[in-house]
Simulated assay, not measured.
Amino acid sequence: MNAEDRQGEPAEHARFAAWLADLEQVADADEFELVGRVLADPDQVMARAAVVRHLDRRAAELCPGTAWEEWAAAMDRAVTAHPFLTRRLREWSLFRAVTLRLPWDADELLASSDWLQLKAAAGPAPEALGVLADRGRTKRIRTTARAGLTRRGGG
């Protein structure tokens, strides 16, 4: 990590910025080792925040591609001791299934976080839009899904 101690900035803020920079530049072969080092940081809240940002960025990049399965399995091993990160990765897998029209379970989508429900409600999959328009957890999720159905001519 190449954190610089900036004048007056709390140390964890400098480490967070440095971890993010390192994660953005890491080679694929070193990614999971670096994630492990970040998660070993004494400030666990900061460490998990850095890793979730990285996970979201990489998942969005890899989601539609063929590299997803191998990456997701390795990332799952890297974050296994961190329930929030494990859940986020699982939700990215569900989002991938919904958007690529792979098999997925409506009950699993309805049990997912507001983050995933809103992301899916803003997406293109009519099956998910229908489920979330009727039974999404929040009014915002239901409204977003209904708007998506209307745009598609399905509502």
Rank of each mutant, 00 (worst) to 15 (best):
A111C: 01
A72H: 05
A40G: 11
E33W: 06
F84Y: 07
T144V: 02
D107M: 03
N2E: 15
P64H: 11
A120M: 08
R6I: 14
W71S: 13
P10S: 12
I141K: 03
Q117P: 12
L94M: 12
A18P: 01
A72L: 00
P42E: 10
G136C: 08
T138S: 15
A3D: 03
D30C: 01
T99W: 03
R15E: 09
G154I: 13
D134V: 09
D22G: 13
D5G: 11
R152W: 08
D134A: 15
A81K: 07
M46V: 12
P64M: 10
E91I: 06
A122Y: 04
S93E: 05
V52M: 00
T144M: 00
D43F: 08
L20M: 13
D28N: 03
A50M: 00
V98T: 08
F32C: 04
E4T: 14
I141V: 15
G65D: 03
L39G: 05
E4I: 13
R15D: 07
Q117E: 09
V51W: 00
G148V: 08
L85C: 02
R6C: 13
M75S: 14
V51G: 00
A72K: 03
W92L: 10
T150N: 06
D76Q: 14
T150G: 04
L94A: 08
D114I: 13
D43W: 09
E12W: 15
A81M: 06
D28C: 00
A49E: 12
T86W: 02
W19L: 10
Q25R: 15
S113Y: 09
G155D: 14
E108D: 11
E61R: 15
T99I: 04
L116N: 01
M75D: 10
L102S: 10
T80D: 10
V98M: 11
A78N: 05
D76N: 09
